[in-house]
Each structure stands twice: as C-alpha cells, then as structure tokens.
C-alpha cells in the first residue's frame, strides 16, 4: 500500500517534470511577453511579473510605443521588420491556407488513384514522388531560387505557395494513399455499380468517409507551410511576402533584441498553429493511428 503510494507520488513527480519540460518554455515566453525589458534584463530575471502589462502587444500591434514603455531601443536598433508581425502573419495565413487547399485537392485525387487503381508506371511514379521528398531542402536552394526568379515570382505569395505545394505534396499523397487503403471497398463498389464514375465515387462516396483523414492531412500541410523558414528566408524580400517565421527570426536574432517585444510577437505567431493543433487533435491522432499504428 505504502509502496504503491510512493510509486504514485513518484509517477506524479515524473509527470510534473515532463510538464515543466514541455510547457515551461512556452509559459516563459508568455510570462516574458507581459513584462518589460527592465525586469527581464536582470539577474535573475523576474519570473512572477510585478505589474503584468499588455504594452508589448500594444506596441507590436499598433507600432507606436505606449507611454509607459521605456526606451528599449538603445541606439535605436529595433528593426523596422520587428514591428511588422501582423502583416507577416497575414502572409503566413494566405500562403498556408492556399497550400493546404491545393495540396488537398491535388493530393487526394492522386492518392485515391494510387490506393485503388493498377496501371503501368504506378509504382515508379509513386516512388518518384516519395523520393523527391528525400532531397534536402538546402540541396536545391539555388535552382529553386532561379526557377522562381525566372517565373518573376520572387517576393510574392505565389512563389511560396508553389514551392511549398511541391514540397508538401509527396507527404500528403503518401498519407492519403495509406488512409484510402484502409477504407472498406464495398461502398465504393456499390457506387460504381450504380453507375458513378471513379471521380464521382471519390467525390460523393469516399470524401465524406475520409473527412477525418483529409482533416489530418490538412493540418499537416498547414503546419508545414506555416513553419517553413529556409525558403521563406530567401524567396521573400519585403513585407509584401515575408512570413511570420522570417520576420520573427530577423527580430529575435538581432543582437539588441528586446526580449519582451519579441516574446509578444512570438506568442502572437504560435497561437494560431496551437489552436489549429488542439482543434484538429482528434484527427491528427487518428491520422497517426492509421499511418503508424496497427
């Protein structure tokens, strides 16, 4: 009995340490974002905010320093980029949602074919699509840059959308092919017998059943596009196309960074994907079950 209790207590302690490791960094950012630099640039930094303030968020959103804000910009080195997180988030959204839409449409159609039809070149093209994903991004950085430049797309949403679609599509196709492979065929066959075309079967019969799989694929695609950094870094130049990771990195690795301001910007940036992950949690887990479980 006592032994069991000790084990339970130990397990709780382990869980708490785990929780600290997982959530601590995020909570620390949240904490920093409601403090001012003068409390963070101390030894040790203030952990429990003395006077929590939303001034950092106000500064990032309105771009005019609130009165209570001391001059953090010693020497005036807060980059013009640092305060453009909102337009950057907007770019990120446009890019990530477009990528998700294209990838789902193109990917689902192809995946259904791979899962259901036998045709010459099937294995070869499938292998080709999957292998293309194994080429490291940095390896094709220059050629991709050149393609985008020749298409006249540098510094545009479209540049990122096209590149991300190409990079994410293989995963989507693989994932959905897996997913479709697990679906019972009887319903489709019935639909086919009723005279539906293949495409019609896909649209009217299969799509509703596979909605959870599509949702998971959408979540993965969105996250992938939202997070990408390397290509966003050198395919964009101005805030017309710069995405949130690029702007945030420019801010955060600036030597003279304001912890407080950048934390606020960072929190704004990570909230959308976190909401996304939590809402789609069931699908993501179920999707993984299909992909990796069983």
């Amino acid at each position: 009995m006592i032994r069991q209790r000790l084990i339970d207590a130990g397990m709780t302690a382990v869980g708490l340490v785990l929780a600290l490791f997982i959530l601590g960094p995020i909570l620390w950012m949240l904490d920093s974002s409601v403090q001012l630099d003068r409390d963070l640039f101390t030894v040790p930094p203030r952990v429990i905010p003395q006077q929590p303030t939303l001034d950092n968020y106000r500064y990032v959103i309105t771009r005019t320093p609130p009165k209570s804000y001391e001059r953090v910009t010693m020497g005036g080195r807060v980059s013009g980029e640092a305060l453009s997180i909102l337009p950057a988030l907007r770019n990120s959204f446009i890019v990530a949602s477009s990528v998700t839409a294209v990838v789902l449409a193109v990917g689902a159609v192809a995946a259904y074919t791979y899962a259901r039809l036998q045709f010459a070149g099937r294995d070869l093209t499938y292998a080709f699509i999957l292998t293309s994903r194994l080429i490291p991004a940095i390896s094709v950085a220059i050629p991709v840059f050149v393609i985008i430049d020749r298409l006249g797309l540098l510094d545009s949403h479209l540049a990122l959308i096209v590149v991300y679609v190409a990079f994410i599509l293989p995963f989507t196709i693989w994932f959905l092919t897996q997913y479709f492979g697990y679906l019972p065929r009887d319903i489709e066959e019935a639909a086919l017998l009723d005279g539906c075309t293949r495409f019609g079967t896909l649209r009217r019969v299969v799509v509703p059943i596979v909605a959870p799989g599509l949702a998971a694929a959408a979540a993965f695609a969105f996250m992938g596009a939202y997070s990408e950094f390397l290509y966003a870094l050198f395919l964009t130049r101005t805030i017309a196309a710069k995405t949130a990771p690029v702007v945030l990195v420019a801010t955060a690795i600036n030597f003279d960074v304001s912890f407080a301001l950048a934390s606020a910007a960072l929190i704004l940036t990570i909230v959308p994907p976190i909401i996304f992950a939590l809402v789609f949690r069931k699908f993501i887990t179920r999707g993984m079950l299909v992909g990796f479980g069983r």
């Binding site: 013009g80 420019a250 030597f255």
Partner: peptide
C-alpha cells in the same frame, strides 16, 4: 522607399 535588415545578416 526604405528597407532595413539586421547588421549581423
């Protein structure tokens, strides 16, 4: 039209 980048990069 002005654009600014970090000194380090």
């Amino acid at each position: 039209n002005l654009t600014d980048y970090n000194w380090g990069q």
